[in-house]
């Protein structure tokens, strides 16, 4: 039971960095294993409906046209030992943006994400004290997370139009920390994921397939956060609420930082998880923004519906 809780909390609190159609299509969705699982395979789907953008003055600017992104994805994770696991995510992006006189849809493979985590502490670990085996009820789950996003999608450099964009076009690395603490055993857990995301510079020689004077652009570094709470209704059902977001430094062109381009946003996520079997999990979720002034800056706001179907392979080794 506890391990199932682990699976839930970690996956729900995993980072959802949802791409904009216009700004790249990287999807960052880490699948995580509990101690009693050796591997997992996840079939995911997201429907992200763009409602508008916040400008540099935090003012909400509504989008009136039909504008959304669908992302089916495959992901897998493997546990090497008690401390180390790694995962991979392969998204496929469908973009729809209905504007008169412009291409309205495009699709392609998105940016592939490799991720891992080194788990330093597990909750309820067993230890020996004066010859007796005891359970550690104080130490929280704690892991160092790391990852790399590869520009396997099509970026604005070689896309024909905005709806063809399925990737950001540059490498991104991330390094973070993950905490989980059970407040009430078998009932309530709180989790936090913090990460620092670094983007590597990209040199543009073309823009939308047209030759240009080369220039280098670098996305600003980003701080991501997720705070989540989980309530386990019973063995088969649980619910989760999360607040997440990011703060991102402004971008730079040819090493010159552009002022007033910092980005930030706050998201809310609600999800429900159903465990029909110990090796199967179904998690539908909603993520939303508050489409009002002051809840973001220089970024898009959207309403996201997602669903994940996860199949687990048991870990038969005794770590």
């Amino acid at each position: 039971m506890k391990r199932l809780f682990f699976i839930l909390i970690i996956i729900i609190s995993s980072e959802y960095s949802v791409s904009q159609v216009c700004c790249g299509g990287g999807v960052y969705d880490i699948a995580v294993l509990s101690l009693n699982k050796r591997a997992l395979f996840n079939l995911g789907y997201k429907f992200d409906n763009y409602m508008g953008v916040w400008d540099a003055n935090n003012q909400w600017r509504k989008v009136s046209q039909t504008y959304y992104q669908m992302t089916p994805s495959l992901s897998a994770a493997y546990r090497f030992n008690k401390h180390l696991q790694a995962g991979v995510l392969v998204p496929y992006i469908f973009n729809v943006n209905e504007l008169p006189g412009l291409p309205t849809n495009g699709s392609g493979i998105g940016d592939v994400v490799l991720s891992g985590r080194y788990e330093i502490f597990h909750e309820y670990a067993l230890y020996k004290e004066k010859g007796k085996i005891k359970t550690d009820k104080i130490t929280p789950y704690f892991a160092v997370t790391f990852g790399m996003t590869f520009p396997s999608g099509k970026s604005d450099e070689n896309a024909n139009s905005e709806v063809d964009i399925t990737g950001k076009g540059f490498y991104t690395s991330s390094l973070g920390l993950s905490f989980i603490k059970t407040i009430m055993k078998d009932k309530i857990q709180l989790g936090t994921d913090l990460s620092w995301q670094h983007s590597f510079p990209k040199t543009y020689t073309k823009y939308y397939n047209q030759e240009i004077q080369p220039y280098e652009r670098r996305q600003g570094d980003r701080f991501n956060f997720v705070l989540s709470g989980n309530y386990f209704i019973n063995f088969y059902n649980s619910i989760s609420l999360a607040v997440s977001g990011f703060l991102q430094n402004g971008y730079s062109i040819n090493d010159v930082k552009v002022e007033n381009t910092n980005e930030s946003v706050v998201n809310f996520t609600a999800s429900y998880t159903y465990y029909p079997k110990t090796y199967l999990r179904i998690t539908p979720l909603f993520k939303w923004n508050i489409p009002s002034n002051g809840f973001g800056s220089n970024t898009a706001g959207s309403l996201l519906f997602g669903i994940n179907l996860v199949y687990y392979i048991e870990n038969l080794d005794d770590f």
Binding site: C22, V53, P103, Y208, T261
Partner: peptide, 30 residues
């Protein structure tokens, strides 16, 4: 400038008459 990107499908202005030039410009976001 706020997001650091341009747009596709623009048409460079071409001469039409009496100093006028006409093309298309694509603003992909508000």
């Amino acid at each position: 400038p706020a997001h650091g990107h341009g747009s596709s499908s623009n048409v460079n202005p071409a001469f039409s008459s009496y100093g006028r030039y006409e093309g298309k410009v694509n603003f992909t976001m508000p």
